[in-house]
């Protein structure tokens, strides 16, 4: 589904990613772990299409197409979804308008009929239950005045509405208490099927107790220095990142 080959990325002339290789197949969950500053969020943002990152070398294909050639909205329409680490507040843009526009853009792209207001509200009610999002929140502007936990729930709620093929969860666990974490994980697991894949970007192993990955990759200084099964996450939790550094002679 997703194939990253020899990816080099710079921001403002500073090289952040230095030769990333990664293959993701439908149905898989990949965790990308690593200490702060290792390039985890850069990778997530490059996949979502953030423009300030410059790809200097390498390629990314998604469903056989060149992802790097696509605008962010095109990526989204083809099924790439990023759950933001810091979802931005957009005063004046009502949640309902935003979500309805997003859902209908997607339906239009797929050649489906746009949803009427009534149909959309029904869909919204269904999906809200999945993450137990407070009903009042959808009456506000996008993310405006949401708590940290509510913002993250709102991301997964959008994921549920848009049913992406590839979801990238960028530090979705940061700032969540244990109940919210479980709720978010429950949402992600419920949305899982053999056709879609998930990349979980996280600093801690905690989230991976609830969203169990098939593969764990350790990103350090812009490179994937170790890849293994889920047991790697527990090992990291136990030994810390220094162990990886030593093992790699870094």
């Amino acid at each position: 589904m997703l194939s990253i080959k020899n990816l080099y990325v710079s921001i403002e002339g500073k090289e952040i990613l230095k030769g990333i290789n990664l293959e993701i197949k439908p149905g898989e969950i990949h965790a990308i772990m690593g200490p702060n500053g290792s390039g985890k969020s850069t990778l997530a943002n490059v996949l979502a299409g953030k423009e300030e990152y410059e790809v200097t070398e390498g390629e990314i294909t998604f469903m056989g197409e060149d992802l790097l050639e696509m605008a962010p909205e095109e990526r989204a329409l083809k099924g790439v979804f990023m759950s933001f680490q810091y979802p931005v507040e957009i005063p004046g843009v009502p949640m309902v308008n935003f979500l309805k526009t997003a859902v209908n853009e997607l339906r239009k792209y797929r050649g489906e009929e746009e949803l009427t207001a009534g149909e959309f509200l029904k869909l919204m009610r269904e999906k809200k239950e999945l993450v137990e999002l407070d009903t009042q929140l959808t009456n506000r502007s996008v993310n405006e005045g949401f708590s940290g936990g509510e913002k993250k729930k709102n991301e997964i709620f959008q994921m549920a509405l848009l049913e992406p093929k590839l979801s990238i969860l960028d530090e979705t666990d940061s700032g969540l208490d244990i109940d919210a974490l479980k709720r978010v994980a429950h949402g992600v697991n419920a949305l899982r099927n053999p056709e879609n894949a998930t990349i979980v970007v996280t600093h801690y192993q905690r989230l991976l107790e609830y969203i169990v990955p098939d593969f764990v990759h350790v990103l350090y200084q812009g490179k994937i220095v170790k890849s293994s099964g889920k047991e790697l996450a527990f090992e990291l939790e136990e030994k810390g990142y220094d162990w990886i550094k030593q093992e790699n002679g870094l």
Partner: peptide, 27 residues
């Protein structure tokens, strides 16, 4: 940042800009 957020949800750039401008005026 806000523009990117809207686009990352599949909303075309011109439409996203329009939403932002309307939001600006809405106050």
């Amino acid at each position: 940042e806000a523009l990117f957020y809207l686009r990352a949800r599949g909303i075309e750039e011109s439409k996203a800009r329009l939403m932002m401008m309307n939001a600006f005026a809405y106050e």
